[in-house]
């Protein structure tokens, strides 16, 4: 029956353009999520410009810069891993993906040290030290924790996704001629990177 032949075709139906379109739409929602955060930031920055300036002095610009470089590099490696896979170089692709994962891990470690340093100085939401400061500074650090925290969560999710991609490439589920999953994961990773590019100046460079 041609009915059956048809459904067989449907089972292996593949639509890479569609898959990417879905991913872009999803990224759009992520942009809006952080967009809301940036809006809140803008409101309070406008309200307390000098306090924000003061509070930003307490952040460690060197660590922030280091993290920016790491994250940018990881975006490069993930992009290269797609190119490698397209050219049939599976091993190279795997190496590049692992490098991406490693960079992401480094980012998180640096973040960890930054946060713990701040917390050990008694600067965290609700701490007596912070509450003694001016309102603008309280909000600055509140936003700092919320926004970098939310971003950190995205880095973590990105790491999980990339770990999956490593497994998929290794097991030939993602291959030279079927790599839309990898592309979508890379898109996500670029977004995580992009958001950081905005967070970095807004918190570290406004001193």
């Amino acid at each position: 029956m041609n009915n059956h032949a048809d459904s067989a075709v449907h089972q292996i139906h593949r639509d890479d353009v569609g898959a990417k379109m879905g991913m872009w739409l999803f990224l759009f929602t992520e942009v809006l999520l952080f967009g809301g955060m940036f809006l809140v930031y803008a409101v309070y920055r406008y309200q307390y410009p000098s306090q924000f300036h003061l509070a930003a002095m307490e952040l460690n610009t060197a660590m922030g810069t280091f993290n920016t470089i790491i994250l940018l590099t990881s975006s490069l490696t993930v992009a290269l891993s797609i190119a490698a896979l397209q050219n049939g170089k599976k091993i190279l692709s795997l190496i590049l993906l692992s490098a991406t994962l490693l960079f992401a891990l480094m980012f998180m470690v640096v973040k960890y040290f930054e946060w713990t340093a701040k917390i050990s100085h008694g600067i965290y939401p609700g701490s007596p030290e912070l509450l003694a400061k001016h309102n603008g500074q309280i909000l600055f650090f509140g936003l700092y924790y919320v926004m970098t925290g939310l971003h950190g969560l995205h880095v973590l999710i990105g790491m999980i996704v990339i770990a999956f991609m490593i497994v998929f490439v290794a097991r030939d589920k993602v291959t030279t001629d079927n790599y839309v999953k990898l592309e979508n994961s890379a898109l996500y990773w670029h977004l995580v990177d992009l958001i950081w590019i905005f967070l970095f100046p807004l918190f570290y460079l406004i001193q």
Partner: peptide, 23 residues
Amino acid sequence: LATPVIALTILLVILERTFGVGI
């Protein structure tokens, strides 16, 4: 287009309740 904004707002209220961020 709209749902992410409520997601964020909700998240902020939860954080406010748990940590007292002050937003």
